[in-house]
Structures are given as structure tokens and as C-alpha cells.
Nucleic acid binder design. Structure first.
Lengths: 334, 334
DNA sequence: CTGTTAGCGCTTTCAC
DNA sequence: GTGAAAGCGCTAACAG
């Protein structure tokens, strides 16, 4: 219908100055009860809400944060985003979601876009490589927290999960199960996650003196899992997958080969996305606390924004081993 | 480090007035080439970007749209959100994501929140019931498009999928397969989707004169699917599920009962979420074009925002029958 | 306690 | 083609 009602309108009707209206809203204790009630009444009647853009301009903050992730369609991210939103909305912030598809150019555009939108901070999950555009934020002291990725180059804030340890725990378990030959079917090798999981794998290989193993890199998808099996020189006793999606593809391929899981071969995943407990067989995997990742990142960012001179901080979350049907039961320890 | 550089700064350095800088950015053709180049050079050097909050205040638009969905964690929504974002970002809009958990009170809060944030429009997927708070937008001519839901009460814009027809198509197929006894295992009955799918089911029951059927309502979850099977007076030849999640639960329960799919009983889903083609058995279902839903909604909203006096419009998308392994092959037609 | 004033950074008349 | 000035709606000194 008409123009939105402004503070001036309220002031005029109430017969007070705009600043009084502003005070009623922001510092009610500094206004006499009489005026306060009168003004509040009119505010309610007209269903007035302050124009947050004007507030934003004045205060230098729109209470908006940017979230850059590779792809919300990747089952790893929805819960993270939910964790971020749940925390930040309570604090009055809104969250602008951006999908980068792990593309460096797109990431740069997005970062510029968010910068021009004057966000108060950003939560960033980038591709493997360092994105120099990040400095438009850091150089101007706009808080940024890295999610699920670190760049040594920055002495910055981040929230990650200890992938190396997660993979190592899993391998330790598999060794105890009695598996003797292994294959790691991993995601894209330039990727932070793939590297860490590979490292955890190698650590176990060394520690447990595993002689019989093979490693192949592909992508973090179902299809890639399916294909990677074909690249193996031989099917080992257990197929350790870079993530759950890969594991699903591997399971399908393995069964198509006439092998049965876990009787003939074991398969494991990484992430524990929602479906893994319902898959058939249900998947032995390493759970990443996605919701927590998001929540912690939001919390961290919030502190950086609101607390003057809050020091950057790194948070490392612990993954958890989840044992289900896709691997054989642990052998009796001797 | 320091304060963000402003238009004034550029103007001073270039030795021109702020309005000229503004023109260089917004209406370059109205500025002489000499000045334009000079100003552009400085803009580049200082990596200047206009403060969009100030622009927003001045122009009365922040180029932001709000998206309210029940839960990004529900596999139905990520692709929709992606469709929205891909379209709208290209147009310079950013998208504020809000999860309502289908809770009426939360929805109201969110709507108020978005209103106070001065969004240019909103895409709204609500619970089943009409939310009166919606009128804060409609009454002020702020564009709103309903997604996956309509309320007769509004002569508004919406994008929906013809669920009734989708279910009817599926039933038609199942009848052709030779199935004689049916059960509909549906989601929460107050829900727009559950109602429509129920309607399509009944339509088929009538049309094909199905005598032997049963209907039970639960929730749209795996667990609910699992439980609903137990509520059946007897296991029919085919279990028609309200969505894919329910179907997964049903499949698990059915197999636990020692029945085999599709040999002993058929199971179908609705939605065709990403996993359904990889599930075992892969799921016969009705595909909703999620990405398209989002894209169309974004397109519609965009037109409503930018085209003066664009008329509200309803878009109905067609679902597609997807035949896979969870139902038996069609019988030879006589 | 309340009002007046200035100004956040930008765009847009309106003069020249 | 360019500059001066006003103002979007709000908040924060500063007076009184």
C-alpha cells in the first residue's frame, strides 16, 4: 500500500521528537514512563519496525554474516548451515548463503560480493588452495572463520575436525578386526579432507606395519567410488573410503562383483551423513559432528564480531568411530 | 586496518565531486572520458566498492531476499535452495536463509525478522496452516512467493508441483503392474503434501475401482515409515509411501519381516531425493523437480520485484514417474 | 528526561 | 558535463 512508517511518523503522532522514539526503542530506561507507554502504544498500533538499513548505515553494521560453502546440495553441509543459523539468528544476525562449487573464480566473486554487501563477518569453506581475496576481509579486520579447512598462511580462526586422527582410529579398529589388506579410495587429492585422511591412513600403515595396501584418488562422489573399485589391482579385505558417498558407490560395485559385505570384504566411510545408518549394509564410518562444526564456527565468529580485540582461535573437534554392519566384528583379542 | 574507503575519499583524491564518482559508477556514459578514466583508476587502486548499505538506504532496496523453509537438513530442500540462489545471485541479490521447523510461532518470528531487515521479497514454504503474519508483506506490496504450498486465501504467486497428478500417475502404473491390494503410508496429515498425495491416491482408488486398500498417516520420516508398517491390518501387495524417507523405513521393516522386495511386496516413494537411485532396492518413486522449483520461484519473485505491476502468477510443475527396482515389472497388457 | 543537531555514504535533482 | 545541496531513516552527542 503506502510507504513504510518511519520513526518520524511515530514521533509526530506521539508529539515527541524522533530521538525520543529512538530512545524508547533502544534505551527505554532513559525515558519517562509516561512517554514510553504513549510511544510504545503507537508503535504497536502502527506495527512499526525500525528500518534496519538506516540503523545499519548509522551503526556501521547490518548484522549480517556471509557463509560460503562448496554446495548445499552436498549432504555434508546442510547440518553445518543449520548449526550456524540456529546460533546466529538468536543473536539477531542473518545469514547470507553462497555456494562456490569449490571454484576459485566463483569464490573470489562471492567474497567480493559479500564484502560489498558489508557483512559483519564470514564463515568460509574454500577449495583446497589459498584464496588471496580473503585478505579484503582480514586486512580490514572483518572477522572470518575458516570452516573445515585451514591455511597456514593465515593466523586466523578456524573450526576443523581432526581428520587424521579420525582415520587413524578407524584403521586401528580395522586392524583389530583382523583385516590384513587395505585399499584407500579417496576423494580429490588436492582437497584438505583427502589429504588429512590420507595422512591418517599412512600413519596407521606405518604404526601397524601394514604391508599390503593400495591408494587411489578420485572424487568425493558415489560415481567415483564405483569407478575406483575398477582401478584396484586386486580387491583387498577392506575398502577404506574417503567419505560415505564413495562408500555407497563402492558397496554397490562390490556387490555387483558378487562379493558380500562384510563376509567377503569390509567397506568403511567417513562423515556419517544421515543415510549411512539406514544404508544396506549400514555403514561403519567416522562421524563428523556437523551441527557442532557449524555451531562452534558461529560462536567463534560472533565473539570476534562483538568482542573488541578477541583473539583468533582455532577449534579442533573430535570425530567419533561408528561401528555398524559393513565391517566384520572385532576378533577376540589374544 | 583502517576505515573503509568511501566515495568522498575517491572524490577528494581525484579532485572531483562525490556526485561525479557516483556517476562514473552508475551512469558512466554521462561522464567525460577523461574524468571517467581518472576516477576509475583511483577506484581500482584503492579497491573501492560502494557501501551497499548506504546505497540501500538511498534506493530503498538492499537487494536481499528472504527464504523461509522448514529445514535445510531435510533432503528435499537443498536443491531448491540451490536453484533459488543460482538464479538470484546472478541478478545481484543475496539470499537470507531461515529454518522454521514448520513451527507457526517460529515462522511468525522469522517473517517479522525478515520484514525488519527490509528484504525486497520472500520465498516462503510454510506449515500447512495459513500464517497471518504474511500480510505484513502483502499489505505493503512486498513480493512474496509461496513455494510448494498454496493458501486459497491469497491471490498470490506460488510454485507448486502437481502432487495429486503425480500420485495418480504412480497408482495408474501400479495398477498396470497388476497390484491388487494397496496401502498408503503417508506423512503428517495436516500437511499440504500429505493431503495432495492422499487425494491423488483416492482418485485412483475410485477410477480403478480398488476395493482393497488401507491408509495410515504418520510423519515424513524414516522412523515413521518403519512404525507405520506395524499399524497395518495386513501387508498388502504394494506399499505406497508419502515420500522417499518413509519408503526407506518401510523397506527396512518389510525386509526385517522376512519379505522380499519386489518379489513379495512392492514399495514406492515420492520426491526422488538423491539417494533413492542408490538405495537397495533402488526406489520406484515420483520425481519432484526440486532445482526447477527453486529456480522458477526465484524467477517469479525477481519479476515481481523488478517489474512494476507484474501480476501474481501461479506455476504448476509436473512431477515425473521414475520406475526402478522396488516394484515388479509391468505385466503384459491383455 | 527531552529536543536539536549533525552525519553515516550514497544518489539525485537542480543549477550552472 | 559537473558540482552543490538535500535527504533516505536512524542514532548519538550535546544542550537545556
Amino acid at each position: 500500500m503506502s510507504r513504510k512508517v518511519s520513526m518520524k511518523d511515530i514521533a509526530k503522532i506521539a508529539g515527541v521528537s524522533p530521538s525520543t522514539v529512538s530512545r524508547v526503542i533502544n534505551k527505554p530506561s532513559e525515558v519517562s514512563e509516561g512517554l514510553r507507554k504513549k510511544v510504545m502504544k503507537i508503535i504497536k498500533e502502527l506495527n512499526y519496525t525500525p528500518n534496519s538499513v538506516a540503523q545499519g548505515l548509522r551503526k556501521g553494521s547490518m548484522k549480517v554474516i556471509g557463509v560460503v560453502i562448496p554446495d548445499i546440495t552436498n549432504p555434508f553441509f546442510p547440518a553445518i548451515v543449520r548449526g550456524i543459523e540456529d546460533f546466529l539468528r538468536k543473536k539477531g544476525y542473518s545469514l547470507v548463503l553462497c555456494n562456490s562449487d569449490q571454484d576459485m573464480e566463483e569464490e573470489k566473486k562471492l567474497l567480493k560480493f559479500l564484502y560489498s554487501k558489508n557483512v559483519d563477518g564470514v564463515i568460509f569453506t574454500g577449495s583446497g588452495e589459498y584464496n588471496p581475496e580473503i585478505e579484503i576481509f582480514t586486512s580490514r579486520n572483518i572477522p572470518l572463520v575458516f570452516l573445515d579447512r585451514i591455511y597456514k598462511k593465515e593466523s586466523s580462526s578456524y573450526v576443523i575436525v581432526d581428520n587424521v586422527d579420525g582415520m587413524f582410529k578407524l584403521m586401528t579398529y580395522l586392524v583389530k578386526c583382523g583385516y590384513k589388506s587395505f585399499a584407500l579410495l579417496n576423494g580429490y587429492k588436492e582437497t584438505f579432507s583427502a589429504k588429512a585422511r590420507y595422512e591418517g591412513f599412512l600413519k596407521a600403515v606405518k604404526k601397524y606395519n601394514i604391508k599390503n595396501y593400495e591408494v587411489v584418488f578420485g572424487r568425493f562422489t558415489y560415481e567415483s567410488g564405483y569407478e575406483m573399485v575398477e582401478k584396484l589391482s586386486k580387491i583387498p579385505e577392506v575398502l577404506v573410503c574417503g567419505n560415505d558417498l564413495i562408500a555407497y558407490g563402492v558397496i554397490n560395485k562390490i556387490e555387483k562383483l558378487g562379493l558380500s559385505i562384510p563376509d567377503d570384504v569390509g567397506v568403511t566411510g567417513f562423515d556419517d551423513i544421515a543415510f549411512s545408518k539406514h544404508y544396506k549394509p549400514s555403514l561403519t564410518t567416522v562421524r563428523q559432528p556437523m551441527y557442532q562444526i557449524g555451531k562452534k564456527a558461529a560462536e567463534l565468529l560472533f565473539k570476534m564480531i562483538e568482542l573488541e580485540k578477541y583473539k583468533p582461535k582455532g577449534i579442533v573437534l573430535n570425530p567419533e568411530l561408528v561401528i555398524r554392519e559393513s565391517t566384520k566384528k572385532i576378533e577376540m583379542e589374544v
